[in-house]
Design a protein around this nucleic acid. Structure first.
Lengths: 379, 379
DNA sequence: AAGTATGTTGAATCAGCCC
DNA sequence: GGGGCTGATTCAACATACT
């Protein structure tokens, strides 16, 4: 057999476009419609905010605030903005893999409409995440609270999609060993990170900080995943994806932005492989049937298991089940039964006694796993 | 002014609308329709969130989470929820004075629909304000980010209403003389503040902390103003309004909640005029994720950490974990591992080397904290 | 009395795999 | 695709009991 199955599968069909690590010029809806169905793992979208600014805004010293007044941010009405939102969210959903997820960032001007459209189209919200800006623009007129945050919505493609990527252990380890919360603190994009034109003016009005996108991708993608950004702008998503060993697809209408993004991304170096590994917890450990402990000779059929308080005793049977009284079932079922609970982790509940010392059977499982790793059974 | 229980229950005569400091029993829409037009200064609304919970949820210790499964939170569809939302927002808008404002609190389950409806009905959003919970419930299954905040929308009755109340200087003074931001940190309502029944069970499943409502009223009302709460529950809004010298109108369907609210409010003493400023409590030391050091550029992915004696070396990964040998985990876990201990403070154990000098990463954490303090984002 | 250990609880859309 | 089994998963406050 000359060609392995995996080799065959890796080759893209001749008809499918090679679209990874490319910027597609054009409107986001038509460009997404041209992409293969179910082909991207994550979408990060920073759509127009539909800012409705009245007149010009001036600082207390009378200098004019450089507002977002680009043509692409103007919509005639909420209805027009909704129609646009639904169109691109629909096209995005087709491109997303069944277990893919989407992130959309916005402010109070547009995020409520985006969130409602997401729900209407069948997406299932997983979290809303607040980007707390450590250095937001002040409210110059003193008529409102300082607008110090933006909102990101993280949603799966379908309500019942349970297999989406969330690097829980990685996030927790990076956050002092407590769960990562839904409010994140980052500075806005300034200084050397902010792209400027030759005149020293900012190239894009709403360039997002790379740190923000980095946490998004580290949380919800694996190395090698494909990340689509339908409002690519100057390519922050592409730059971060490349640095983190993810593939990107960008869609952008403005050739000037595309040129800036290409130059920017080309200068990005991918981090070395070993810096990109993701912390994994117990969930990623290989399964070990309890019977393996018997087969490995670590526990003999007929041996007695007890809980830490020696209140319950179970007898090990040759087939990997255990018995308490007339009850014969798995270590988990029996552990639950004797405690009157609906569930129980038998690995941590049951112990074996040797010379008066109790050892949790989870310790024996660890030994089995070590052996498996040595034999190369487990990659 | 003494409030008797019978006085609280008295319905206002239709001819002379004396409706201040009363709880009206009934459905919020019909009760609001019976109120005079343009008669209240501020509305604070905590509507049903339309949580769509699946099965039971258990904590890791097998205890069952007491879910919000009350009938009033059940809606057949998003469409049904939208119809309900539009109905009460419409009735609320009629009751609101032209320069009045409305606050609505919600979570990602409902807040996007509320926000879109507000905009559709002609309200004008002034801010969205994030309530950051200092002690939120964890995500027990580790499948998402910890849901650590709720969102409040603050809106004026009309786009062109410029005369709404915003106590800018009061807010700024209460916030160490920097503008009050749109993200507020408060603990959830527990302990002595949480109303309990005779059996010691919580009286209401979603009682809000008084401190949160107090900041809302101190920001957007003047003493003597009338505050309407169409989902009065156990009367947090009424209690805070009375304490702060504002009038309230409550609407509530459940007689048991009304009885509890009456008793609660009757026990509240109005604060003396001069003491109506909020006290701000800052946490001792803000938590800094190790990942923040990477995001701040103080440590690069791939950098090497060593202990003070240079006996151990760990490599920093892009996701905020570190690695020694095959072990990938937090700075704390890896520090414990290499020393053969069960625990370790990674902040003081690990160092970075620059020009031959070892610096504990705790020093870098200190720098991050200083920056945060300078920007006023600690609290 | 002061500190330590243990138990309880909160607006929650909270599994993955094999057969 | 459905059914069944395995076995992984929590943070900050507050309350209570005990040393």
């Amino acid at each position: 057999m000359a060609l392995s199955r995996s080799a065959l599968m890796k080759r893209p069909p001749a008809s499918a476009p090679v679209f990874k690590d490319r910027i597609l010029m054009g409107h986001c809806v038509s460009q997404m419609e041209a992409l293969p169905e179910a082909s991207v793992d994550v979408i990060f979208a920073d759509p127009p905010y539909n800012l409705q600014l009245g007149g010009d805004l001036h600082r207390p010293d009378q200098s004019k605030v450089d507002a977002v007044d680009d043509a692409w941010d103007q919509f005639e009405s909420f209805q027009a903005y909704d129609a646009f939102t639904r169109a691109w969210l629909l096209a995005a959903r087709r491109v997303l893999k069944p277990n893919g997820t989407i992130w959309v960032i916005g402010s109070y001007h547009n995020i409520f409409r985006v969130g409602a459209s997401l729900q209407d189209l069948g997406y299932w919200i997983l979290n809303d995440v607040v980007w707390r800006k450590s250095n937001p623009m002040p409210n110059f007129r003193g008529r409102r609270f300082q607008n110090a945050h933006e909102t990101m919505i993280w949603a799966s493609r379908d309500q019942n999609a349970k297999g989406y990527t969330f690097n829980y252990d990685s996030m927790k380890a990076a956050n002092d060993d407590v769960q990562m919360r839904s409010d994140w603190l980052f500075p806005i994009c300034t200084g050397g990170e902010r792209l400027k034109d030759k005149a020293g003016q900012k190239l894009h009005p709403t360039q997002k900080p790379e740190a923000l996108i980095a946490r998004v991708l580290l949380a919800s993608t694996k190395p090698g995943d494909v990340v689509l950004d339908p409002f690519f702008g100057t390519g922050t998503t592409g730059a971060v994806a490349r640095r983190l060993g993810r593939h990107f697809v960008g869609i952008e209408r403005d050739p000037a932005y595309i040129a800036a993004a290409e130059q920017r991304i080309a200068a990005v170096e991918r981090l070395p492989e070993e810096s990109l590994l993701i912390a994994t917890g117990k969930r990623a450990e290989p399964r070990v049937p309890f019977a393996s402990l018997i087969e490995a000779g670590l526990i003999a059929p007929g041996a007695r298991l007890t809980d830490a308080g020696r209140r319950h005793v179970a007898q090990v049977r040759a087939d990997g089940t255990v018995a308490v009284g007339g009850e014969v079932a798995s270590i988990h079922r029996v552990g639950a039964k004797v405690q009157g609970l609906s569930a129980c982790n038998g690995w941590t509940f049951w112990h074996v006694e040797a010379e008066g010392v109790l050892t949790p059977i989870d310790e024996l499982r660890r030994l089995v796993r070590e052996k498996m790793a040595l034999r190369g059974v487990v990659s």
